[in-house]
């Protein structure tokens, strides 16, 4: 997928857990283009308690089950989709990290960029699944949720909320 298109459009990539990565160019707050098709969206809270997503004038009952930073659980027709919304930058970084982690059997979570740890969600000896949020790192004025890319047991947590980390500092180890 070419996420670096020539034009100056803003881009966002939606990564669907055990599904596809879908790239959207952001026209404005309501309009998105994916594969040359324009989607005009409007989110409506209905009087009967339902939430409707209007897409190009079609009405679909939806539900946002949870939001954690850029990670969403969304239900459409009762089916859950776990989606992380990435900027081109965070998307590439995640891809790169995943590639690195696949090489080694154990996952060492290093700080990808210098920053400050805002929140640590796991503790030593805790079992985690791939995709579970481990910690939130603020870097480059953005909050990034660092997730486990594989299932395992947390072997070590070397940071706490408030820790300042340099690039490549080990934060969490998963074995």
């Amino acid at each position: 997928m070419n996420i670096f298109s020539k034009n100056k459009d803003k881009k966002l990539i939606a990564r669907v857990k055990s599904g596809k990565d879908l790239a959207f160019s952001v026209q404005n707050k309501q309009e998105f283009v994916h594969k040359r098709k324009t989607y005009n969206t409007l989110l409506i809270e209905e009087l009967d308690g339902m939430t409707t997503l209007m897409v190009n004038n079609e009405r679909i009952p939806v539900e946002i089950v949870s939001i954690k930073q850029n990670e969403y659980e969304i239900m459409v027709n009762g089916v859950s989709y776990f989606i992380s919304v990435e900027t081109p930058f965070s998307y590439e970084r995640k891809k790169m990290l995943e590639k690195q982690q696949q090489k080694s059997g154990k996952e060492v979570i290093k700080a990808p960029i210098p920053g400050k740890v805002l929140e640590v969600m796991v503790q030593k000896d805790q079992a985690v699944n791939a995709g579970d949020a481990l910690l939130v790192l603020e870097a480059m004025k953005m909050q990034n949720t660092i997730c486990a890319s594989r299932a395992g047991i947390v072997k070590n947590v070397t940071v706490t909320a408030g820790s300042v980390v340099s690039k490549d500092d080990v934060m969490v180890e998963i074995g």
Binding site: L12, A14, V16, G19, K20, L22, F24, V26, K29, Q30, F32, H34, Y39, T41, L43, L53, V55, I60, V62, I64, I67, N70, Y72, I74, M75, V76, N77, V79, Y81, I83, V85
Partner: peptide, 16 residues
């Protein structure tokens, strides 16, 4: 189209 609808909801919410 369920998947694209779900991603559209996430993207539009994120954008706002």
């Amino acid at each position: 189209d369920e998947e694209i609808l779900a991603t559209l909801l996430a993207i539009s919410h994120y954008t706002r």
